[in-house]
């Protein structure tokens, strides 16, 4: 059976594995998958966490295994890829749109290193205004920062840019 399953099918299945903290984004949207290899007894998937201390890593690892095994009926091994590190530029454009619609401002595209200035005037996901300021570089999860929008008077979160 495993011969008939293509790598593309595995990627399609991975689109159904959602991030537990941001349930509108899949592991593909987030750019967490670094490799899919068909092996003799199934498929081997390599993934990377967004933040080193992300508490959801083993949970996501488990979800990948369960979802792909159930959908494709093959054995799945999931490995943390230590050769690649996650950066926010790995997030797809589609993911950024979904994030915004979910009420979280997406990370700015990084050219080089993170500088304090990049955290100013982050567009508000609610009203689109850039009259905003950074209230704290730490939010409800490790990957988020807290901003305030002066135009609509609302606090909002941002998925912060990471080198």
């Amino acid at each position: 059976m495993s011969q008939t399953i293509s790598i593309a099918a595995v990627y399609e299945s991975l689109e159904h594995v959602m991030d537990p903290e941001i349930p509108v984004l899949s592991v593909i949207d987030l750019g967490m998958i670094t490799g899919v290899d068909m092996v003799a007894d199934g498929v081997h998937i390599k993934m990377i966490p967004t933040f080193a201390a992300c508490p959801a890593v083993s949970y996501i690892q488990h979800n990948i295994k369960t979802v792909v095994e159930n959908e494709l009926g093959i054995a799945v091994t999931v490995e943390i890829d230590k050769q690649v590190h996650w950066e926010s530029n790995r997030m797809t454009d589609a993911a950024k749109e979904k994030l915004k619609n979910f009420g979280i401002a997406p990370p700015q595209i990084l050219e080089g290193e993170v500088r304090a200035e990049i955290m100013l005037h982050t567009p508000c996901p609610h009203c689109g205004s850039e009259q905003t300021y950074l209230r704290s570089p730490f939010g409800s999860t490790l990957c988020r920062a807290i901003h305030f929008c002066k135009s609509c008077g609302q606090v909002f979160e941002q998925f912060k840019p990471l080198e």
């Binding site: 080193a52 201390a53 992300c54 209230r135 570089p137 730490f138 939010g139 490790l142």
Partner: peptide
């Protein structure tokens, strides 16, 4: 915000 900041930094450090 500071409560959250120190809690987040704790998580990073332990990670």
């Amino acid at each position: 915000e500071e409560d959250i900041a120190f809690s987040s930094m704790a998580q990073d450090k332990i990670g």
